[in-house]
């Protein structure tokens, strides 16, 4: 019997994997993809509770999360492209323009 607890544990594990990706990788595109993993973890949680409570609001919220993720991906990748054209790198250790 699969309770919402199972889905919450899955969502937590996916969230932690995403956070690990953001913390440990230096390739900025992989960091962005790990952020998408985090958003997906949240979506799984929302939809699991929508199923449990039989209320469509969870799915509506998940749709908005997907829309915001799309907007953020577009703008973030635009920034990456603009940065790459100037600095020829996508390693965030080298993107330290404002450090001394």
């Amino acid at each position: 019997m699969i309770t919402p607890t199972h889905y919450m544990l899955l969502s937590t594990a996916l969230f932690i994997i995403g956070v690990l990706g953001v913390m440990l990788r230096r390739n900025i595109i992989v960091i962005f993809m790990s952020i998408e993993l985090i958003l997906n973890a949240v979506n799984i949680n929302l939809i699991a509770f929508s199923y449990q409570l039989q209320n469509g609001i969870g799915q509506v919220f998940a749709i908005f999360v997907i829309a915001v993720a799309a907007a953020e991906a577009a703008v973030g990748l635009g920034i990456i492209l603009a940065f790459y054209r100037n600095k020829e790198t996508i390693n965030i250790d080298e993107m330290s323009v404002m450090r001394w």
Binding site: A71, A74, V75, G78, I79, L81
Partner: peptide, 10 residues
């Protein structure tokens, strides 16, 4: 807004 922003940035 995101569409316009992405076009301008890239």
């Amino acid at each position: 807004v995101a569409m316009v922003g992405a076009i301008i940035l890239a």
